[in-house]
Design a protein around this nucleic acid. Structure first.
Length: 577
RNA sequence: CGGGGUAUAGCGCAGUCCGGUUAGCGCACUUGUUUUGGGAACAAGGGGCCGCAAGUUCGAAUCUUGCUACCCCGACCA
């Protein structure tokens, strides 16, 4: 490609909105252009990167016998009503009416459509297993889109859906997808980590996320210092141990206007791990099909832990939760904000006991009375614990013991979720009545798996992981161009001649080469080259007369002067060899 | 959805408090001359319904009201 024929609108200054390096670089380097919140044009350079990521994905998916299809972006509401998600999915689902007033949505994911796609023809166990995939744009009307393509509303996703007759078959395909994903991110040159994860709104029982390690990542990962266990913070769990002390006399203590758990602990001169805090929630629950009721819950948890929303939502089987207001704490929970304690007089409040308070002795907790706490509360004597209410709803703290090996402790890092694989089970085949006949001639719902990759997000994560102040340092596998050929002075005949020669030769060899034939000053061309981020750069300057050019590398200061033939040979070997 | 903020040329911004000719600056863009190994210099240009709508006024980018878009923070603990 000749630069003069191409379109790369670069900017000298960083865009004002950019919050993270990948966003700034993608906008400044002419990769993407924002058209609305969370909606972007892919400019030629950005599209090249996307296409390269897609190609790697296709190759690795095909290797695992996955079959490519393309489903529509607009999906009739009917299918979503059938699965029950038309009602459940909430405001993230972009709903649209056609001219006749029929409801559609812009697909945020395609479980319903794939089930419909196979439902007429996939009828026998003999046809199983089968795994379909597509690369299609999705639309999710995110609460807060941000970070450019990293969390866009419209985005490109590879999604795959597998169908099985039994669990063993699902396990095999799941494992195959795990391998495919490892290969994909490996080939993209990305440093990634696999973590166990919550399966979220899609449902299912087992899932893992592929995370690109990056400081600016939106997800928190906990990983073990000793074994290879790692989990999303929404999923990680630990075993909390409480030191058992001799039981002391229970007493009510005056704690004037002392509400925050740390303040209470230091006021009473006890460790925070000796306190129990009580947290009040309001949540929505679907009590009957399409019938939502607002309910209330209170969580007892050790003072040094935080409630994890996702775990609590799962435990309550809630559609969503929010903290109860002070008014509600008084009127519904029948207690006092800041001084909540055991056995409030509230009826209709779901009680959840986090297992972190099991075994706690001489605990401090609110007295359900303004300005008073209870000290030295002990189980059995001062309160009872109903085992059926015990759950794990806490967020693991750094330093907690790993639940996998019980040897190491958790450390924390941030990551960008680029891939997610799920074992869905029969959730969609059942709700949508998609069945096959097994070997005994019995009707069975399909057992399903589902596997997603954020294409644009993967590209952005690569910038996040590999960049400097001047632009991206693309891994060669997904670089928009592999080589930039750059004559210093476009008016010098010998330079142009050499540049033409190298360009056409590399092009003929199938290398992605950009020839900067613009009549620009060297500095301009070099800065744009930095923003394009091609790993190799051939600069044709003064020594062109001798047939000598300079080869430099995007990821370092190293430069070598070589003859034209040597450069061509080197690049062809490096890139095609 | 709650709170805060912004909206002036393709990009980055000043001007708005305190209304007053022709709305400015840097970058980018066009033309010319000189330059030419890391975003050149000089000169001459083109480009604006000052987010939209209504109002106040002799006069509105500037004041008032409404709307829209965009950005940030929050939606997590008493």
């Amino acid at each position: 490609m000749k630069y003069s024929k191409y379109y790369i609108p670069t900017f000298r200054e960083n865009p004002a909105d950019a919050e993270i390096p990948s966003q700034a670089i993608a906008l400044r380097g002419g990769y993407i252009k924002k058209i609305a919140t969370g909606v972007y044009d892919y400019l030629p350079l950005g599209l090249r990167v996307i296409r390269k990521v897609e190609r790697i994905i296709r190759e690795e998916m095909n290797k695992k016998d996955a079959v490519e299809v393309l489903m529509p972006s607009m999906v009739p509401a009917e299918l979503w009503q059938k699965s029950g998600r038309w009602f459940k999915y909430g405001k993230e689902l972009l709903r649209i009416k056609d001219r006749a007033g029929r409801d559609f949505c812009y697909g945020p994911t395609h479980e319903e459509v794939i089930v419909d796609l196979v439902s007429d023809d996939l009828k026998s166990y003999k046809q199983l297993p089968i795994n379909f995939y597509q690369i299609q744009n999705k639309f999710r009307d995110e609460i807060r889109p941000r970070f450019g393509l990293m969390r866009a509303r419209e985005f490109s996703m590879k999604d795959a859906y597998s169908f099985h007759a039994d669990e063993q078959s699902l396990d095999l395909t799941y494992k195959g997808m795990y391998e495919a994903y490892s290969n994909i991110f490996g080939r993209c040159g990305l440093n990634h980590r696999v973590v166990s994860a919550d399966s979220g709104a899609i449902g299912g029982n087992s899932s893992q996320e592929f995370m690109i390690v990056a400081e600016t990542g939106e997800d928190e990962i906990l990983y073990c210092s000793s074994c290879d266990h790692a989990a999303n913070i929404e999923k990680a769990s630990t075993k909390v141990t409480n030191k058992s002390d001799d039981s002391l006399e229970v007493e009510k203590v005056h704690t004037p206007d002392i509400k925050a758990i740390e303040d209470v602990a230091s006021f009473l001169n006890v460790g925070v791990e000796k306190t129990i805090k009580v947290v009040a929630y309001k949540y929505d629950k679907e009590v009957a099909p399409e019938k939502v009721q607002t309910k209330y819950a209170m969580v007892y948890i050790r003072g040094d832990y935080e409630v994890n929303d996702v775990k609590l939502i799962n435990r309550l089987d809630a559609l969503g939760i929010e903290p109860a207001s002070e008014e509600e704490i008084i009127s519904v929970f029948k207690t006092v904000p800041g001084f909540m304690g055991f056995s409030s007089k509230a009826s209709d409040v779901q009680i959840i006991i986090d297992d972190s308070i099991i075994g706690i002795t001489n605990a401090v907790i609110g007295a359900n009375e303004k300005d008073y706490h209870i000290k030295n509360a002990n189980v059995g004597r001062d309160y009872v614990i109903d085992d059926s209410l015990v759950a794990d709803v806490k967020t693991v703290n750094v330093g907690d013991v790993c639940l996998s090996c019980f040897k190491g402790t958790y450390k924390k890092e941030r990551g960008i979720e680029v891939g997610h694989i799920f074992k869905l089970g029969t959730k969609y085949s059942q709700s949508m009545n998609a069945t096959f006949l097994d070997q005994q001639g019995k009707v069975q719902p399909f057992i399903m798996g589902c596997y997603g990759i954020g294409v644009g997000r993967t590209a952005m994560a690569a910038i996040e992981q590999y960049h400097d102040d001047n632009g991206p340092l693309w891994p060669i596998s997904i670089a928009p161009f592999e080589v930039i050929v750059l004559p210093v002075n476009g008016n010098k005949e010998e330079q142009v001649k050499l540049a033409d020669d190298i360009y056409s030769e590399l092009l003929a060899k199938g290398i992605d080469v950009l020839y900067d034939d613009r009549d620009e000053r060297l500095g301009v061309k070099l800065n744009d080259a930095d923003l394009i981020g091609a790993p190799y750069r051939v600069i044709i300057g003064k020594r062109a007369i001798e047939g000598i050019v300079e080869l430099s590398f995007r990821n370092g200061d190293e430069k070598v002067e070589l003859t034209v033939e040597k450069v061509k040979q080197f690049l062809v070997e490096k890139i095609k060899g």
